[in-house]
């Protein structure tokens, strides 16, 4: 199965030879880390390449690496895409680093419509914005919610102001 990453590298060789920053297959999960500015090109290639054919964006989420016991990471956030190809029955994890200052990556909605709600969820809980998302608003929480609760610096016990007609 290690040839998924090889196939991707071969496909990127001509156009974006330095798009992949890191790659591994630890615990059997094929993983590539890509440069943020090449993300959309890589994702399109992953969907359209005949021997890649990742037709499903199974999952999209983010990780906040702040306060890790094994040392800090730079950039602080990572957006993680889990892809699956039904035709080839293979999977790939694509990760892209997101710095706290910019806090923005390109949207994958034009590539897989499934990204719509998942990106809204990441925006809602992590405050990462997706450039080009058609309707980026909170999904699990309500409009008046202050902050982004899955960030590590959001205390678990923090209370939110009451909302509604009687407050």
């Amino acid at each position: 199965m290690s040839d998924v990453r090889d196939r991707l590298r071969a496909a990127l060789q001509d156009t974006l030879p330095d798009a992949i920053v890191d790659s591994h297959a630890r615990l059997g999960d094929e993983t590539v880390v890509v440069r943020s500015d090449a993300l959309v090109d890589v994702l399109v290639l992953l969907r359209d390449g005949a021997d890649l054919a990742f037709d499903q964006l199974v999952d999209l989420t983010a990780v906040d690496h702040a306060g890790r016991a094994d040392g800090p990471r730079d950039p602080r956030f990572e957006v993680v895409y889990h892809l699956r190809s039904i035709a080839h029955n293979h999977r790939l994890r694509v990760k892209v680093g997101v710095a706290l200052e910019a806090c923005e990556v390109d949207s994958a909605v034009p590539i897989w419509p499934a990204a719509d709600w998942m990106e809204r969820e990441v925006f809602d809980l992590y405050g990462i914005r997706f450039r080009g998302h058609p309707d980026l608003r909170r999904i699990l929480l309500y409009e008046e919610f202050e902050g982004h609760p899955l960030r590590k610096d959001y205390p678990k016990t923090l209370r939110q102001p009451l909302i509604g007609p009687f407050n």
Partner: peptide, 24 residues
């Protein structure tokens, strides 16, 4: 139903992501 787990080697997880089928 997918679980994406990230550990930093300590007793507490860094990330417990549940990929919920009914959301998708």
């Amino acid at each position: 139903l997918g679980f994406y787990l990230v550990s930093d080697g300590s007793q507490k997880p860094v990330k417990v992501r549940c990929r919920p089928p009914s959301f998708a």
